[in-house]
């Protein structure tokens, strides 16, 4: 809805016009009472909007710094990354054993011999894997 008889006064005052368009608009304003009124209204509103900045609330800067710079705590499971590699492998194997054993024991309250054999086999597998993995890590 651009007015064709008047230039873009607000854009001019906002510093958005350049070159010839700016020059033409500025020249128009000197001849046009209506546009001079628009300039005055723009300035009055601008002055009204130009409220002074209030000082920062007490402690604002320090609180902002604390919040920004706060070191993130490492996520819970990361502590074990600090262990040497073989320990880690051992730990993994141990946890696997515990989990498996727990699950199996829960299922097999009245375990027969074949179940016990299976359990023993299951327990052996991760342990063997861990033993195989550990030297590989140590070699690095």
């Amino acid at each position: 809805m651009r007015d064709r008889t008047h230039p873009r006064i607000e854009a001019l005052l906002d510093g958005e016009l350049a070159g010839e368009e700016a020059a033409r608009a500025a020249a128009h304003v000197t001849r046009c009472g209506e546009c001079q009124g628009a300039v005055a209204a723009y300035r009055a509103l601008g002055e009204a909007l130009a409220a002074p900045e209030a000082p920062l609330p007490v402690g604002f800067a320090a609180a902002t710094r604390r919040r920004a710079v706060a070191r993130r705590r490492p996520e819970a499971p990361l502590w074990w990354l600090t262990l040497p590699a073989p320990w880690r492998a051992g730990l993994v194997a141990l946890l696997a054993l515990a989990a498996l054993a727990g699950a199996r024991l829960g299922e097999t309250v009245a375990a027969d011999r074949s179940a016990a054999t299976q359990l023993a086999a299951a327990l052996d597998a991760p342990a063997a894997a861990a033993i195989a993995a550990a030297p590989a890590e140590v070699r690095r």
Partner: peptide
Amino acid sequence: AGKPRNRG
């Protein structure tokens, strides 16, 4: 910034 009157 007051009330500019028509200048011409």
